[in-house]
Design a binder for these strands. Structure first.
Length: 596
RNA sequence: GCGCCGGUAGCUCAGCUGGAUAGAGCACCAGACUUCGAAUCUGGGGGUCAGGGGUUCGAAUCCCUUCCGGCGCGCCA
C-alpha cells in the first residue's frame, strides 16, 4: 500500500530536539565528541506533577562524559529552554530534566488526530522491512478449539500492528499436512467411507479420530466415487482419501478463522516441501556442506524415560553451536524426516522469499522447541535472519467463574465456533488481546457479555459509541452543525482548541497524543496487548470527563449558549473517537456507533 | 536431573525494554441520577514486587542463588 510517510508525532519530535540539544553541547565542548546518545530517552513521567515529558539524558551520559549528572542536566536545560515547544524546564531528582510543553503542542497533536483520521498513529518505524508472521498452524485433523484461537487472534493483531507501524507484513498459516497424525486422519476417513457405504465399522480404533466431523469425508467420497475406491489398492485410495480429508478440514478451519476476522495472506503446506523436489533434503545438504549437520550418536534423553529408546547413529543438526543444549535429530529411525527437519526447510523458504525478520506464534507446549528453531534460523541464514517466537499460554474457559469442562479424549471439546457464536468475535478478540501472550488467560463466557466496566470490551466500545452519541446530541443542540461526517470533520479540524483549558481536557489531549508512541512501542516489542490496555485507559479518561459535566455543567461537551466552545469540545471528542476507532481496528474489534 | 515461561494489593492483571512516592479493575467502605445514555463517575483503606545476594547515580525490571507453579525434555506435531 502506497502511503506517504506519516508525520512524526510529538514524542518522536521532542526526542529529536533533545538529541539536537545534546549535539549542541558536543559542539560547545561540554560533552565529548562521539559520545553514545542511543540510551537517551524521552517519556511521559509517571507523576504528572513532574511535567509533560522527561529525559534521562544527563544520567545516562554522566559516566561517559566524566561529569556529574546535575552539571550536564543544567547545561542541557539551558539549551532546551530556548525551544519553541517548551514552556518550562526543570532539573529534578538525580538528574531528570522535566519539560512542560506549551499548550499549543497538545492542541496541535489533538488536531493532528482529527486530520489524520483512521491513519492517526500510523508510523514509518518499520522502514518497509519485510516481516513474516506465522500463526495457528494447527493440524488439519479437526475443528479448531478455543486454545487455537488465542494464537490466531494474537498473530493477526500483531500483523496488523506491524503493518500500521510501517513494516511489510505477510500473515502465514503453516498447514501440518504431513506426518503420522494426517495418516491417522486418512485411516479415520477411510473407515467413515466404508461406513457411508453401509458397512458396520464398529468402534473407531484407538489412535484414530472418533469425532463425527470425519463422517463428512466418507459421505463426500461416497458421492464422488460410489464403491469404486473399495476395489483399489491402498496405494491408490490413500492419496485420494487424504487429500479429501485435508480439504474438508481446512475448509472448516478457514471458516472458523474468518468468523474471527482472521484471514491469512497465504497457506503454506508442509507436504509441499517434499512433493515438488525434496526441499528438506536440499536444506539438510546445505547445512551439511557448512559442517552443521553430521552423523553421530546422542545420549539418551533425560527425565521421562523413553520405552523404545535405541542407541543408534543418526543425522544430527549441530544446534549446540548456536546456543541449544543438545544437537537435534533430523531423521527418524524409519528414515523419514523429523518435524524439525521440515520446519528448517520451511523457515529456509521464508528466508528465500526475502523475510529476514520472522515471528512464529506457538502454543505453550512448544516452548522447549524455541532454542533449536532459532539456532536453525541462524545457521541457514548465516546469522542474517532473526526469529522471534511468541509463546501463547493456554486459555482457561470459565462460565461465571466456574471452569468449563473439556475432555478432548471423549471428543468433547468446546470449539472455536461455539464460543464465537455465543459471545461474538469482538469479545473473543478483545479478551484474547487483553492479556500478555505469555500469561495464562481466564476467559469467562458470562463476563464478556456483561455491559459494565468489568467487561473491558464493552467499556472501550462504549467509549467510542458515547462519542457518537455526543455528536447526535450536538446535532440537536446546534441544528447548523453539518450532518455529513466529512463536513463535520472539516469544521472540527479548524476548531478553536485553545478554549479547552480544563485539567481533564488537557489530560485527555495528552493521552491522545501518546497513541502513536504506544503503537510504535507495541509494534517493536511485538506486544499487541499494549494497544488494548491503552484503549482501556483512554476510555476511563473519556468516561470520567463525560461524567464531570454532571456535577459541573460548564464542563459538558455541549454548551447551549456557546457554540464556539462546543465545537472545540466536539473536536476533542472527535479526536478520542478517532483513536478508539484506529485502536480497535488494529485489534480487529468493531467500533460501534451505538451500543443498543 | 536439565531447559523455557511465570510468581506484583484478598482476587484478575498492567508496569512503556533500568527511572522519581509501584498502578488499574473486581471485591470492601463512603458518596453522585429533574443526565450531552448512571451501561457512568468521585473518594477511601489495602504492598517485604516469592526469599536472599550482586551490578549502579537508580532494580518489580539486568546477573547469581533458593523456594513455589505451569510447560517441555530422540523416532508427536
Amino acid at each position: 500500500m502506497a502511503t506517504s510517510t506519516p508525520p512524526r508525532h510529538l514524542f518522536a519530535d521532542m526526542h529529536d530536539r533533545v538529541i539536537a540539544a545534546n549535539q549542541a553541547l558536543i559542539a560547545d565542548g561540554v560533552l565529548p565528541k562521539g559520545i553514545d546518545l542511543s540510551r537517551v530517552l524521552i517519556e511521559p513521567p509517571r507523576d504528572p506533577s513532574h511535567g509533560d515529558m522527561a529525559t534521562n539524558a544527563a544520567m545516562v551520559l554522566a559516566k561517559d562524559a566524566g561529569k556529574k549528572p546535575r552539571e550536564i542536566a543544567d547545561a542541557l536545560a539551558g539549551k532546551l529552554r530556548g525551544d519553541a515547544l517548551v514552556e518550562t524546564v526543570d532539573v529534578a531528582g538525580p538528574g531528570f530534566i522535566n519539560l512542560t510543553l506549551k499548550p499549543e503542542a497538545w492542541l496541535e497533536a489533538t488536531r493532528a488526530a482529527i486530520v489524520a483520521g483512521k491513519d492517526y498513529g500510523r508510523s514509518a518505524v518499520g522502514k518497509a522491512a519485510k516481516v513474516n508472521v506465522e500463526y495457528v498452524s494447527a493440524n488439519p485433523t479437526g475443528p479448531m478449539h478455543v486454545g487455537h484461537c488465542r494464537g490466531a487472534v494474537f498473530g493477526d493483531a500483531l500483523a496488523s500492528l506491524l503493518a500500521f507501524a510501517g513494516f511489510e507484513v505477510c500473515r502465514e498459516y503453516y498447514i501440518n499436512d504431513a506426518g503420522a497424525q494426517i495418516e491417522a486422519l486418512t485411516q479415520s476417513g477411510w473407515l467413515r467411507y466404508r461406513e457411508a457405504l453401509g458397512e458396520n465399522i464398529g468402534a473407531i480404533p484407538e489412535g484414530l479420530y472418533p469425532g463425527d466431523y470425519v463422517k463428512q469425508v466418507g459421505e463426500e467420497l461416497k458421492v464422488d466415487y460410489g464403491a469404486d475406491l473399495l476395489k483399489k489398492p491402498e496405494s491408490e485410495w490413500k492419496p485420494i482419501v487424504r487429500e479429501r480429508a485435508i480439504n474438508i478440514m481446512m475448509a472448516d478451519i478457514r471458516n472458523d478463522l474468518w468468523s474471527l476476522g482472521v484471514v491469512p495472506d497465504m497457506f503454506f503446506s508442509e507436504a509441499s516441501l517434499t512433493e515438488d523436489g525434496d526441499k528438506v533434503a536440499e536444506t539438510i545438504d546445505v547445512l551439511r556442506k557448512q559442517g552443521k549437520v553430521y552423523e553421530g550418536r546422542l545420549p539418551p534423553p533425560k527425565g521421562a524415560p523413553v520405552d523404545d529408546y535405541e542407541d543408534r547413529e543418526q543425522t544430527l543438526f549441530r544446534s549446540t553451536d548456536f546456543g541449544d543444549d543438545v544437537d537435534r535429530p533430523l531423521k527418524k529411525s524409519d528414515g523419514s524426516y523429523t518435524y524439525f527437519a521440515s520446519d528448517i526447510a520451511y523457515h529456509k523458504s521464508k528466508i528465500d522469499r526475502g523475510f529476514l525478520s520472522m515471528i512464529d506464534v506457538w502454543g505453550a507446549d512448544h516452548g522447549g522447541y524455541v532454542k533449536r528453531m532459532q539456532a536453525a534460523v541462524k545457521a541457514i541464514s548465516g546469522g542474517k535472519a532473526d526469529l522471534d517466537v511468541k509463546i501463547i499460554q493456554l486459555v482457561k474457559l470459565l462460565r461465571d467463574g466456574q471452569p468449563v469442562k473439556m475432555s478432548k479424549r471423549a471428543g468433547e471439546f468446546v470449539t472455536l465456533r461455539e464460543v464465537v457464536e455465543e459471545v461474538g468475535s469482538d469479545a473473543v478478540r478483545f479478551m484474547m488481546l487483553y492479556r500478555k501472550n505469555d500469561a495464562v488467560l481466564d476467559f469467562d463466557l458470562a463476563r464478556v457479555k456483561e455491559q459494565s466496566r468489568d467487561n473491558p470490551v464493552f467499556y472501550v466500545q462504549y467509549g467510542h459509541a458515547r462519542g457518537h452519541s455526543i455528536f447526535r446530541m450536538a446535532g440537536e443542540a446546534f441544528p447548523k452543525l453539518p450532518e455529513e461526517p466529512a463536513d463535520r470533520l472539516a469544521l472540527l479540524a479548524k476548531a478553536p482548541l485553545a478554549r479547552l483549558t480544563d485539567a481533564g481536557e488537557l489530560s485527555l489531549m495528552r493521552k491522545i497524543a501518546a497513541f502513536p508512541r504506544v503503537v510504535e512501542a507495541a509494534a517493536l516489542s511485538h506486544e499487541p496487548h499494549r494497544i488494548a490496555f491503552y484503549l482501556y485507559e483512554l476510555a476511563a479518561e473519556f468516561h470520567a470527563q463525560w461524567t464531570k459535566g454532571k456535577d459541573l455543567p460548564h464542563l459538558r461537551f455541549i454548551i447551549q449558549n456557546d457554540e464556539e466552545l462546543s465545537v472545540a469540545r466536539l473536536a476533542l471528542v472527535q479526536s478520542a473517537v478517532t483513536v478508539f476507532a484506529a485502536g480497535l481496528k488494529l485489534l480487529g474489534v468493531g467500533a460501534p456507533e451505538e451500543m443498543r
